[in-house]
Design a protein around this nucleic acid. Structure first.
Lengths: 323, 323
DNA sequence: CTGTTAGCGCTTTCAG
DNA sequence: CTGAAAGCGCTAACAG
């Protein structure tokens, strides 16, 4: 592995010259010197050692993105891809780490002296504090903001169903504990809308994503038309299959709306009405915050920003707009 | 941030003593010295600097796991979690990176001087070479092995369906390009089985995972019973919904088998027969290889190992075994 | 059993 | 515009 000293020697210059030129101070040097350095670096296949650089600078070019322990849907991946691309463009390296619900963050991550840490889900306060104490820039949505967004999602789903004519709704959530953090606020949001509008709400259906789980849940529904607010497309799909199997028809006997605008929702027959959100926006926002060393609080209330980015994608499980 | 020098001073010892004790050479020191060092380290909240250590050792404790650009299903996550856990237990830090289909591996990753790189999908030969040239230990399944496994999966699916009594089969694959690498071999495996057994195979159905995509594909099926070999559970689900909607019944009119044993396959109504694989096994195998600095070739033919780990999970889309 | 010493590869003043 | 020198935090010989 070639070192910067090798490059310097090969080019017949000093190490500092090489370092300067390779680190954005090229305007201080002659065309020819620059060319020589670049040529030598290329010939030797020089790659700066991150360790050396980190030691000298006190901080590395690495960003750690913490990924929550929920269903890893394509949207989440899209979000990660956008953040990674933006950071790469800025010369940073985004590395990922899955975090279990309550698992403690590994100390080694901090030992990396990362340029920053991005958490895609709210972090326990203790961990948040620890990261900040280490002088590491942390971007994480405060739990309240996340909750506000999810409530808004639930509210939007409920609103869409009542607008579509259902006068009785029910919320459907998975039993899986790990989805709880997102499911609870969504359920709350949907119920809040209903109580504001005087819409009747049936007891929440909890479906186990296992064989027969959805059937058992759906069997509890009354025979009359009901609008179902599903936690996500996966749950919606399970419910859809079970309901159709029991002879219920959509959208006549039941309406259904999921969340994620996933391909399974679109590719399903009938296709499922679902909520889409502009994830690209969030991705760029997160990367921008990190690059400008800003904090989430420094910008306008994120809940408002994001609710503007929610949108319903109509499918076959709700009546076509009568417009 | 406390350094090892701080710890040494606090304990009234030399830095090397501290370093030795904190790096597994404690058997050389007195009980009391050890206790003092540990106490001081704890008091000061000392965390070794990865950069310093890497520089001194020439290699870091980091492992980079490359994740392919395919649907990130729960099984894949499980695999990653297992690898991470095993590596953590060995004192290594596993960091993840998504790799796009043909996107070039970022050089910075090599600059990290990682302890090793794990690729969860076969790598282009050029990249593989480059990683190895940098003296980095790479664990990646050779493309042939991956292909062999996928062929075996397709073969198993086809076999299960013919055993279940279907005398005509059709393969169903997604049109998405990024799944191609896995889809082609599976299709080939299924067809190979059919031609060996003299089973009739219909033209492969290509389904777009978009609205109406599955309907269009299913409409091409003849009215008589056919066994469908689906690329994965997602595709199977799309096909299932479309076929039921068109009035076909399962398992009488069509049989269906997916791959992944995902929750959506189990939670679907009717539930989908699917192929499960022992991913924990692979995870431990990968971590073990890395820790022992072995290569994939050093162990027995992986294709054979893995085919033993495949198993069909019966669902409602194939007839119950008549035993 | 303990301390001294010499780097690992890089960046960054600072003097020329 | 260029080069010398110092030091980031740690490890590992080696001498005591």
């Amino acid at each position: 592995m070639a070192t910067s000293a090798d490059v310097a020697q090969h080019a017949g210059l000093s190490r500092s010259t090489v370092s300067q030129i390779l680190n954005g101070r090229e305007h201080l040097f002659s065309e020819e010197t620059i060319a020589r350095v670049r040529a030598s670096a290329a010939v030797l296949g020089y790659r700066p050692s991150l360790a050396g650089r980190t030691l000298a600078r006190g901080t590395s070019d690495i960003v750690i993105t913490l990924i929550p322990d929920v269903t890893f849907n394509p949207r989440l991946r899209e979000l990660v891809d956008i953040i990674t691309a933006d950071l790469t463009a800025a010369g940073l390296t985004n590395l990922l780490r899955f975090v279990g619900s309550e698992e403690s963050l590994h100390d080694t991550l901090l030992g990396l002296k990362p340029f920053g840490v991005v958490s895609l889900a709210p972090l326990p306060p203790a961990q948040e504090r620890r990261i900040r104490e280490h002088g590491v820039h942390l971007i994480a949505q405060p739990r309240e903001a996340q909750v506000a967004i999810d409530e808004e999602i639930g509210r939007l789903q409920a609103r869409y169903l009542t607008d579509a004519g259902y006068d009785t709704l029910a919320v459907v959530v998975p039993v899986a504990v790990r989805e709880r953090g997102f499911a609870l606020p969504r359920e709350r949001g949907a119920k809040a809308w209903c109580s504001e509008q005087g819409v009747r709400v049936l007891p929440t259906l909890r479906v186990a994503l296992e064989r027969g789980g959805a059937q058992a849940a759906v069997a509890k529904l009354p025979p009359r038309p009901v609008g179902l607010v599903a936690y996500n497309d996966e749950v919606a799909l399970a419910v859809l299959g079970a309901a159709l199997h029991q002879g219920r028809r959509t959208p006549e006997d039941f309406g259904l709306i999921g969340v994620d605008n996933s391909s399974i929702a679109r590719a399903s027959t009938p296709s499922i009405t679902t909520v889409d959100y502009d994830i690209a926006f969030s991705g760029h926002a997160i990367a921008g915050l990190l690059l400008q060393r800003l904090n989430v609080q420094d910008v306008a209330d994120p809940a408002h920003q994001v609710t503007d980015r929610l949108r319903v994608v109509a499918g076959d499980t709700t009546p076509a707009p009568t417009s």
